[in-house]
């Protein structure tokens, strides 16, 4: 029990983060792509395609952060101070983009809130990438507390992760627009998606080389025997999915490119999990060392097993209710 509980929780939180990244990823991506739109009508259409969902999508972030606190309070207490500045900048970014949804429709001039939406989305995404990079590169810990400085996270690697995530979310956003809109918006998104796909592949390749080169433990994980025999399909499948995404974009398919982009994200995520498990705070604290009391983990687990399927149920209901394409000029509220 003492061994399994933290592993189960790590998987649950991992799932919450995966949900967050794919779901909020596409709506943040819409914000990143906003500057390439041509008119207010187009921007209305783009926003309308995510407006009923963004709040629910962002709730996965609260679940991820909250879940970390519930199940691994020590990890939460180390990671947050270590990545203090990027976390707060992310929150501020999310504020500006979140309120832009409502404010944009009721203000007389939309321009200001368009900027808030673009800058907020991009900054929040970049900060999330930096947080990810900051985690991967390792956090110095002593006596279960962070001992580094305020700017330790600011390395070229973390900043590159930030950039990569901006490109990645833009890809998710572009393929979402291909699926959910029509007319010029969809056509332009299709063009963007091809280039973004290429850029994402470059980023993934760079990160896959950079991490094992600088982190011995990650190199050992991937390139030692027997691991390498199990792990070589991961890059291969990634390449196949990327190829599929490109073909489907070229052939005018509407839903498949989005699904392929999501799969690409999940594969990249899987790669990171493989690199870092069982560390929650690499390279020092594992899931077992940071776990909450078993009584707390069980109390929460019971509820989660009942509630999560329900939550997923009504989330599916909402996506189903708002299925189909958003036309240009469709009303906001």
């Amino acid at each position: 029990m003492e061994w399994y509980l933290p592993v189960i929780w790590a998987m649950l939180i991992g799932a919450a983060v995966a949900f967050y990244v794919t779901l909020d990823g596409f709506d943040l991506g819409i914000g990143i792509l906003f500057p390439w739109s041509r008119s207010e009508r187009e921007r209305d259409q783009m926003m309308r395609s995510v407006a009923p969902f963004w709040d629910g999508n962002e709730t996965w972030l609260v679940l991820g952060g909250g879940g970390l606190w519930v199940a691994f309070p020590v990890a939460y207490a180390v990671i947050m101070p270590a990545l203090y500045l990027p976390v707060i900048v992310m929150l501020l970014g999310l504020i500006f983009r979140g309120i832009a949804f409502e404010f944009r429709t009721i203000s007389h001039s939309k321009t200001g809130w368009n900027y808030a939406f673009v800058i907020g989305s991009t900054v929040a995404t970049f900060a999330q990438g930096v947080i990810l990079g900051g985690l991967i590169q390792g956090i110095p810990v002593k006596d279960n507390a962070y001992i580094g400085g305020a700017l330790d996270w600011a390395t070229p690697f973390a900043l590159f992760c930030g950039l990569s995530l901006v490109i990645g979310y833009a890809l998710l956003g572009a393929t979402w627009l291909v699926m959910k809109t029509e007319g010029p918006v969809a056509a332009r998104a299709r063009g963007h998606a091809v280039w973004l796909l290429l850029a994402v592949l470059v980023c993934m390749a760079v990160i896959s080389l950079w991490t094992p080169l600088t982190q011995q433990r990650i190199a050992d994980r991937w390139f030692s025997t027997p691991n390498i025999f199990y792990l070589w399909p991961v890059p291969l499948v990634t390449a196949l999915v990327a190829y599929g995404c490109w073909r489907w974009l070229e052939r005018g398919r509407e839903v498949l490119p989005f699904l392929a982009a999501v799969a690409l994200f999940l594969l990249g995520y899987l790669g990171l999990v493989i690199s870092n498990f069982p560390y929650l705070v690499p390279p020092s604290l594992t899931v077992w060392e940071t776990a909450a009391a078993p009584a707390s983990q069980i109390f929460m687990l019971i509820g989660t097993l009942f509630l999560l399927p329900m939550v997923l149920g009504y989330i599916v209901l909402v996506y189903w209710l708002f299925r189909g394409k958003v036309r240009e000029g469709e009303s906001y509220h």
Partner: peptide
């Protein structure tokens, strides 16, 4: 965290998702 954490966790699972999702329908 052992005590307060789960309470916040239940808040997310029972309340925040419910509000956010049905808000989409309401709006």
């Amino acid at each position: 965290g052992n005590v307060v954490g789960p309470l916040i966790g239940y808040e997310v699972l029972t309340a925040f998702f419910l509000e956010a999702t049905f808000l989409g329908i309401l709006l």
